[in-house]
């Protein structure tokens, strides 16, 4: 059996083990060096959040759950840190029951780290089952009525941060962090009709489809997966910190090289065997 035949029949479990070996090094070493480049859509996202005026609040809408925590978690954390640093008050709205618990835990941790207080600097509105279009369209006109209470069932009118939030007029920016295409609902019912900027934080899978909205101005900025989160961390002053996003960016580099090498090897073997079969076929005639 030739080399290429052996390679073509390689046990897939060896490939899995090699993947684990390839991604492990940056995660163990934990480099602090963040990606040197910041894409313009990440810079635009940063600017959109930074410009929220003091009389308005931000909405962080999270659709993600534990399944995409590895991508959406760093994005949520980076945006929350920025808002806490800048003193931008925000509310977190979750459309996934597991994600609601995770975002509350993360928000509490960051708030404690930065000396911020629940109810004054941030509020978690808990899980809402949807339908998203009905809740979002209702929120735009009467925030207090549709949302009504936070995750602890405390009325919004009794919480200092949300007491005066009535409708879209008190919202400065919407940050949508999602593994699915829910940003179009916000655009159609909330941000586009009332001219509120939307910052889109998708998983990498959804990012390629968002560029038309960035071009038309319907999205103010975008964080592309964990790479976008790493770039955003650079902008908020964490460029030299050994964060998970920075380590993940380097692990991704290694993983991408590995995938490209596999595609190359697989096709090399395939083409070599195909040409041998053709030569063998012609010789046999």
């Amino acid at each position: 059996m030739g080399v290429f035949e052996k390679l073509q029949n390689l046990d897939r479990r060896i490939l899995y083990v090699l993947l684990a070996v390839v991604v492990s090094a940056p995660l163990l070493i934990r480099p602090s060096r963040h990606p040197g480049i910041v894409l313009s859509e990440v810079q635009s996202a940063y600017n959109a959040v930074d410009r929220v005026s003091s009389d308005k609040i931000a909405i962080i809408s999270t659709v993600w759950g534990a399944g995409t925590e590895a991508e959406n978690g760093p994005q949520t954390e980076a945006v929350m840190r920025h808002m806490f640093q800048k003193g931008i008050k925000f509310v977190v709205l979750s459309w996934d029951p597991v994600g609601a618990e995770i975002t509350y835990r993360d928000g509490s941790r960051i708030a404690k780290e930065l000396g911020k207080h629940y109810g004054v600097d941030w509020v978690h509105l808990g899980y809402r089952p949807g339908p998203i279009y009905a809740v979002v369209s209702g929120m735009a006109e009467d925030f207090q009525r549709v949302i009504d209470h936070d995750r602890f069932n405390k009325k919004l009118k009794d919480i200092p941060l949300t007491r005066d939030v009535r409708s879209h007029r008190q919202i400065g920016v919407v940050v949508e962090i999602t593994p699915s295409g829910t940003a179009t609902t916000w655009i159609a019912y909330f941000t586009q009709p009332y001219g509120i900027p939307l910052v889109y934080c998708p998983t990498a899978v959804m990012a390629a489809e968002a560029y038309p909205y960035l071009d038309s101005g319907q999205m103010a900025g975008m964080l592309n997966g964990v790479i976008g989160a790493a770039q955003y961390e650079t902008l908020i002053g964490l460029g030299n910190s050994p964060t998970y996003a920075a380590a993940a960016a380097w692990s991704l580099s290694a993983a991408h090289i590995y995938i490209i090498a596999l595609i190359f090897l697989g096709n090399l073997g395939f083409l070599t065997m195909r040409s041998r079969n053709r030569v063998g076929g012609r010789a046999g005639r």
């Binding site: 995660l27 590895a70 991508e71 990498a204 899978v205 997966g225 998970y244 993940a248």
Partner: peptide
Amino acid sequence: GAIFGATVMGRMTLFIGRFNFLAQ
């Protein structure tokens, strides 16, 4: 091709997140 490249990046990140939990 852009969607494929982004998909690979996205899915790899999910595994990296899990591995990070085991490592850290």
